[in-house]
Structure formats: structure tokens, C-alpha cells
Amino acid sequence: MKFLLAFQTLFVLGIWIVPTLAQNPWTPQIRNEQWLFFSRKLANEGRPVWEANYAPLGAINYGLGGIELSMFCGVLQTVVVVYIGSNNVPVNTVDDIVRGVNTVVDKIHEKLPNTNILLVGTFPRADQPDLSGTLRKIRDIDEKLEALVGGDTQRRGHFFDLFWFLAPSSLDRIYEHLYVGDKLHLNTDGYQVWQRER
């Protein structure tokens, strides 16, 4: 089912990045202002898709790393779209990542109790040596998160999974034509897939 974004949507990308193994993914990390940006992430492949499809809806893009969610106080949004946890895949366990993401969903709901939360599942990535193991780990994370957040009426949670549009069921590769050279970030064609399937 496609989840249509409504007017005054708040779009949140990539929050809760954990930089070291010593930190856990459910404890907020203190960042200075250099970590907060609104459009830098979209200065690349995703900008045309954003400008054509989301900016006209009044959407706001926050590309954030390890932020404290107090910044959401006082905003009135219909939907918060969260893509989170990808940077944790190489360094944290499945259960720790799930706990961290679920904590963020709790915090967003606490700050914005009347807002729908659309959690986007982790995209496949091919930047790690054990490609098949990485893809299986991501599937495990996403399945657990979908069970926790998808259809959660109390927290107004929804889950959107693009994984099978970006990698085959064999879990032995990604569709590289949808990625930039790092095999981690989507290119314009990849963002078009996201837009088409939303």
C-alpha cells in the first residue's frame, strides 16, 4: 500500500548515527551545529526527486546525525518520515539496532503524539566485505522493526519496506544501477524507485 505524504510533512533522514562501538544506539548523542543541516544531503542525486515531489507539499528535510529530539517540540506535522540505522549495521547487533530505532520512534511519538510516523526500512548496502551476511542482517532488522512499528496504532506507526526493489531475493547482490559508486547511497534512479513505490 502506498503511503501518501500530506501537506506540511516533516521528512527526517538518517538520524541516530552512532560513531563508535563504545556507544549504544539508544542513547542520544550530543552534536554541535555542524551536524544539523537541512539540504546538504539533497545537494546530490536525490534533489530532483525531492524538488519535484516533496518540496511542493511543504515538506521539510532534516538530514541529521545523532540528534537530540528536543528540536521537534512545537512543530505541527502530519507525518514524520524516518530513515534510520543504516550506519549502525556494520558496528551494532541486530537487537541493539532494533532497540535504538524503537527508542527514536518512542521519542518522536512523545514529542509529536498526534503525528503519524512512517519508518522506512533499511536499504540494502554492498559496502561491507560479507555482502550476503550484511543483507541478511538488514532483513532481520527490518522484519523485527516492521513487527514493532508497522500498524502500531498507539504510536501511529507505519512501516515502508523498499528492500526487494533494491536487491534480489537471492541476497547475493544489490541492484547496483540504483546506487552511486559507494554502493550505499541511492542515485537518482534509486530515488525514483522510492518515489514510485511510496
Rank of each mutant, 00 (worst) to 15 (best):
P168V: 08
S170M: 09
V193C: 02
H185L: 14
E176G: 09
L171S: 14
Q192P: 09
W194H: 09
Y191L: 05
N187A: 04
L178Y: 05
V193D: 00
Q192R: 11
L186N: 00
R196Q: 13
R196P: 00
Y179I: 00
H185F: 07
R196W: 08
K183N: 15
L178T: 09
G181H: 02
H185S: 14
L186T: 10
R173C: 13
E176T: 12
Y191A: 07
H185G: 13
Y179E: 03
V180P: 02
G181Y: 04
K183F: 13
Y191R: 07
Y175G: 05
Y175R: 10
H185V: 12
D172W: 05
A167Q: 06
H177A: 15
I174Q: 00
E176Y: 02
T188V: 06
E176L: 04
G181W: 01
S169F: 01
T188W: 01
N187Q: 06
D172I: 03
D182N: 11
D182P: 10
Y175N: 10
E176K: 08
H177V: 15
L184F: 14
E176H: 10
D189C: 11
L184T: 07
L178V: 05
L178W: 03
V193I: 11
G181A: 13
L184Q: 08
Q192H: 11
Q195W: 01
D189P: 00
Y179S: 06
D182Y: 10
G181I: 12
R196Y: 15
I174N: 01
Q195S: 06
D172H: 02
S169R: 14
L186Q: 04
V193Y: 05
A167E: 01
Y191F: 08
T188C: 05
D172T: 02
W194T: 03
D182Q: 15
H185R: 11
G190P: 11
Q192A: 14
L186G: 08
Q195H: 13
N187R: 03
Q195V: 05
L178N: 01
A167P: 04
